[in-house]
Amino acid sequence: MLKYIGKRLVQSIFTLFVIITIVFSLLRLMPEEGYLGAAAEKMTEAQQEIYLTNLGLRDPLIVQLGNFYQGLFQGDLGKSITYRTDVPVVDIIQDKMMYSILFGLGAVALSLLVGVPLGILMAQFKGRWLDRLGTGYIVFVVAVPAMVYFLMIQMYVTGWFGWPMLFDEYNPISFILPLISMALGPIASYAMWMRRYMVDELNKDYIKLARAKGVKERTIMFRHVLRNAFIPMAQYLPATILFTITGSIYIESLYSIPGMGGLLVDAIQRQDNQVVQGLVIFFSSLGIIGLILGDLLMAIVDPRIKLGKGDSVR
């Protein structure tokens, strides 16, 4: 088990290294105005050249990469150029991350709490009205553009209850609607997956044997099916959780939540190469952490992995 974890960690660090290097190299190909910011027009070409040289952008790529990694290890992702001039990129991300994590974790917790049990019930009552209702909900969420029901919720529900339209840090009630809106999609996907995996498991031979030895249907559900159905979910769960945490552009802008959702778009529009680079590295690290967590979760629930024979059951 330990050996397996170690191996996965080393692999991930290597992957991360490759990704960061590629991101860094690609961003060197972006227009250089991005490094000059608002000052670009006021500078002569010679001045621009000196400025860029001072930033280290005229060094050979390999030296730049070295400098960059040196900074990275000290937690320095450089300074913002146009987005918030001269503010360290790390600080910018930190400020916004707070809100996104708060909402992200909240939404994930809510969708797990509702989505997984919903999926289980749908599997248990497959073909009956509860299953149909759930399926209807899933189809609705998938088929109708999210923006439509996000807007409806904001417009009507706030009206009914007299709740604030916009997010206000100091008013707990203003958390509720964005949270619910964020959870609607994930609830549907968790329910759909859980139902599907449960139904798959219920058709397997070991369930027939459990029935034949006289185990009650409900006991079969909870003692045998649930854990098996959870395995395919376990691997993707952390990645989806992190995905939710990184923010929903729609909802954050709808409720004016100062989260991470719009940050990348803003930074790209303003050609702030430093912030873009910082964000891409941040997101990919999160993604990779998610994958590792997924594998670890799998290794915990699935005894077949512990032997370390293969690295994946798939």
Binding site: D205, Y206, K208, L209, A212, H224, N228, D302, P303
Partner: peptide, 13 residues
Amino acid sequence: MVTQDPMTSLNPL
């Protein structure tokens, strides 16, 4: 009952 396929008749977990 003893079933046919021992490879799939037991709960893997």
